[in-house]
Design a protein around this nucleic acid. Structure first.
Lengths: 125, 125
DNA sequence: CTTGCCTTTGACGTTAACGTCAGGTTTTAG
DNA sequence: CTAAAACCTGACGTTAACGTCAAAGGCAAG
């Protein structure tokens, strides 16, 4: 309990963030390099993250799974941080939303194709 | 109309296949190299495909979009060609089906997150 | 003090489905 | 016949999100 532990929360090292979020430390360093995470540094140079970094990393994983690049996520981060958005950001949000929706439709179509084949091959031993 | 043009259908060159399926000729050669397509060769060495190759290529595109690798598609091709499947193939079919379904769920979750943000930023100019 | 785990920077490796260029042959349109 | 368009093989380039290894420091426990 040092003087620096105020309402801002406890600071955690990279390993704890990685374990809590279910990713590698390499991934966390990569996110920081891409401008997705910010860290303070201990006197010896070790990264210290705020504990909400764990939530952020989980969110990044979800966006990556949806096909967003780290660049795009970085461009849209202000929408979460500040709640403020300009016209460009709103357009990007809708574009990504539409792209994901199209992808869902594609996947659903592929799923239907596979289910057809499964049904046929199951009744056709 | 040569003697070889029987009920098997007309043979088309790679460019026609590519255009009809909406891909590059490079992609078609790649598919053949991966064992997804078969071609006869003209006396001068040009690839000649059966016209149903177009349907196949479109199908490959759909499977690629669903995250299947060319290797996996090649392993499952007999399920379409012959209708016959062994236990391994049926297991693979279900595994891919489940993986795609999980991916759809992930995408839907990401979509909901984005829609939340869009709703907030739209009412919060 | 030393053992062992955690962290650092730096840099090369991976993967899949092609893109792209080079240099040469073939087919087609006129 | 000739020029353009299409085709061939071969081979290197691309991309994103990390994996992996190297060499070296840092930190609590016993």
């Amino acid at each position: 309990m040092t003087v620096t532990e105020t309402a801002a929360g406890r600071l955690v090292r990279i390993g704890e963030v990685a374990r809590a979020a279910g990713v590698s430390t390499r991934a966390v360093r990569y996110y920081e390099q891409q401008g997705l995470l910010i860290s303070e540094r201990s006197p010896s140079g070790q990264r210290l993250y705020r504990q909400d970094a764990v939530t952020l990393v989980r969110f990044f994983q979800q966006m990556f799974a949806a096909g967003l690049t780290s660049r795009r996520i970085a461009e849209l981060l202000p929408c979460w941080d500040s709640g403020h958005t300009d016209a460009d950001q709103r357009a990007m949000l809708r574009a990504e939303r539409d792209r994901i929706q199209a992808k869902v439709d594609d996947l659903q179509a592929a799923l239907d194709r596979l289910d057809e084949v499964i049904a046929i091959t199951d009744t056709h031993p």
